[in-house]
Design a protein around this nucleic acid. Sequence first.
DNA 1: GGAAAAATAT
DNA 2: TATATTTTTC
Length: 394
Amino acid sequence: MVMMMDYMETIKITNNKNKAYQDYMQALLEERRKIQVFHRELPLCLDLVNQAIENCKQYVYSSERSDQCEEKQEETSSEGPVLEEFIPMKRSLSCEEEEEDKSNIDESNVNNNNNIGKKVDWLRSVQLWNQNPEVPPPSQQQEYHQQQEQENSPRKEISADVKENGGAFHPFHKTKPIKTVASETVTINTVPNSVQTASTNPATTRKEEKENQLNRKTRRCWSPELHRRFLQALQQLGGSHAATPKQIRELMKVDGLTNDEVKSHLQKYRLHTRRPGPSMHGNGNTPPTQFVVVGGIWVPPQDYTPSTTNANAPSADSEKIYVPVAATSQLTLSLRQQQQQQKHHKQSELSTGSSHSERKSSLAEHSTREKNARSSSPAVTSSSTETTTASPNF
DNA sequence: GGAAAAATAT
DNA sequence: TATATTTTTC
């Protein structure tokens, strides 16, 4: 009786494993279908997958047959099924969970197949990388993976929220709440950054460092608040092209802000707002559109109010305006972002002052490479193609 | 205003 | 170390 129960149990396991194999085969077929697109580039992969499928088929077939045989033998034989027979299958199935053990090349096709599967996955990820703006470029993938590890939330949430993978612009740091600005001239972030790169670069002598410090102006740090004022001024002056740096500076009413700094910022602003975004899966031929970036998302200006984070789908208009990501998305900070901010903040505390914490914030978006814009800058500045999909932070 | 150079970040 | 991004300087 006990043996009988054992046997029934074994059959159940067998069926389950067959089922697992069949599922696996389905997966393989699916993979093969995808690989076939790359059959020229990956002929061997295709081969291997085919082999694996064949083996799967054979295995399932043979095990079914052996099941039938055993069922027939059941009446005549008192022996239970040979469990060992399933061990290889189990092993191969568990390979999916194991890390690849390269020393163990027993060439079970299924095992091989795992590698193929991974390759296919890799290829797929490349596709996503090209097509899906949510997947950061390689230079940011490390951070991206950290995100993935730190949170289980789906990517959609990331996209709805502000992404932090930088891109053309680095996110603002928001650990330090910016105090509300009075209507009069204010001092926003005008404190020069403390010694930059001092003692961090062994190549430069102390003399050089000193000289640099003396000669070179400290970097202007464009805080979200500063940028917000910049945008306000821009709006008042009729857009980034109508406004001049001097006018902007006067409207901004920020102590210590120079025309050059405003000009530089304006330049960057223009550069990014006009960037055709060739790598952006857009063809760069799209007619000019006008968006406001709120929380990393383009929204039509009419839907944008500086104090809200209400972001809607982009729509066309005349000229788009960038809104500092951080300035409008503070409410959307996720725990992960806060963690990252803490991390970055820690770093910045060790090195420099506010500029680091500003730049290293975690509120960013995937963006086009500025290089693209620069490489085509002559056309860029004159053309009106504005298919920017990046959301830089200022 | 624009672009090269330098500084900084990844 | 290489590359990208941001700011300064010309």
